[in-house]
């Protein structure tokens, strides 16, 4: 019975493919043929249209003198004036520098910490020890930055914060962290590692667990020490993954970590010199100053630079590790 059914199916599709159809007709034919599947995808496609593509139309605001009353279609077109204003104000230097500097630090230290942890955890033994410490190290990742901001208070508060309590043990004067911008890149990097290194190490641990144990065994036979094995086997074999993830992270280097920075620094102008990034600056000019045009201009620049960067970075990543392309 299945023989004739198969034959029938085969004949049917042959006949169909021999029919000549115009492009529009074949489009309709395809939709009808797989109508259930296209119907499934329809809500999602609509959602992306409304929430991802429609806002792209709003880019025009960057080129307008936007007035809320007049809306998008009524506001005056002013060309590049918003951009000129932004660059002339000089603010851009600080926020771009902060964004790039902080993100670079984050990428370097987070990756280093994640690799460290992955290597160390795979080297130690003790199933219970590994399980418990891994659970603890991954835990911070699940907390939102607003909650973390509370934790930070416990440490940096001028009166009674842990760091200052510790310092007073040695008779050192309390540091007013909330008024001293110079400490904050350091603090933010420590926070980033606290939040992300444990979770980030999972990927590296998965990679390490895929290394053939025979390589280690033959190295042992040749008399290699643990350190040598790490240096000459584990790390080199991790390199492709590290490079790939780093390259991908660089794609987002112009996007400040708004969630972290705003939740923790908030609206504390004293700390802006070292912590204000493009995203927080944009947010404030939109919400506090109501300057839609300027914010839109900054946002557009950020999206544009990010787009070029991501394309570049993805093509490099494809050459480094071709199997990892999204599609």
């Amino acid at each position: 019975m299945s023989n004739t059914t198969v034959q029938q199916v085969a004949i049917k599709s042959e006949v169909e493919s021999r029919k000549k159809r115009g492009p529009f007709a074949s489009f309709i034919y395809e939709i009808v043929k797989n109508k259930f599947l296209y119907l499934l995808a329809l809500p999602g496609m609509l959602w992306f249209f409304v929430f991802a593509y429609l806002p792209m139309v709003g880019i025009i605001i960057a080129f307008q003198d936007f007035k809320a009353m007049k809306g998008i279609f009524g506001s005056e077109f002013v060309g590049l004036r918003n951009f000129q204003f932004f660059f002339r104000s000089g603010d851009w230097i600080q926020i771009v520098t902060n964004t790039l500097f902080l993100n670079t630090l984050f990428i370097i230290f987070n990756t280093a910490a994640a690799v460290f942890i992955a290597v160390m955890v795979t080297e130690v033994s003790g199933k219970w020890f590994k399980k418990v410490t891994q659970s603890v190290m991954i835990f911070p990742h699940f907390l939102s930055w607003t909650v973390v901001a509370m934790f930070v208070m416990a440490f940096v508060a001028t009166d009674g914060g842990f760091i200052n309590q510790f310092l007073s043990l040695f008779g050192i004067e309390s540091i007013q962290f909330l008024a001293s911008p110079q400490y904050w890149p350091f603090i933010l990097v420590l926070l980033k590692i606290w939040h992300g290194a444990g979770f980030g190490s999972i990927v590296y641990m998965a990679t390490i667990s895929g290394i053939n144990p025979e390589i280690y065994e033959s190295a042992s036979i040749d008399g290699a020490s643990r350190l040598q094995k790490i240096r000459f086997i584990t790390l080199p074999l991790l390199k492709p993954t590290v490079i790939l993830l780093t390259i991908l992270a660089v794609g987002g280097i112009f996007n400040g970590d708004f969630g972290m920075i705003y939740a923790i620094v908030g609206r504390n102008p004293l700390l802006y010199p070292t912590t204000d990034v493009i995203d927080t600056y944009l947010f404030r000019s939109m919400m506090d100053l109501g300057d839609m045009s300027m914010s839109a201009a900054i946002g557009f620049l950020q999206s544009l630079v990010g787009f070029i960067l991501v394309l570049t970075v993805n093509s490099i990543a494809k050459k480094v590790a071709p199997e990892s392309a999204i599609f």
Binding site: V50, Y53, L54, P55, M56, G58, A62, I72, G299
Partner: peptide, 14 residues
């Protein structure tokens, strides 16, 4: 949509 976005202002207005 992962490569390019319309930005906060546009989403906010929308």
């Amino acid at each position: 949509t992962m490569l390019f976005q319309g930005g906060l202002v546009a989403s906010y207005l929308l």
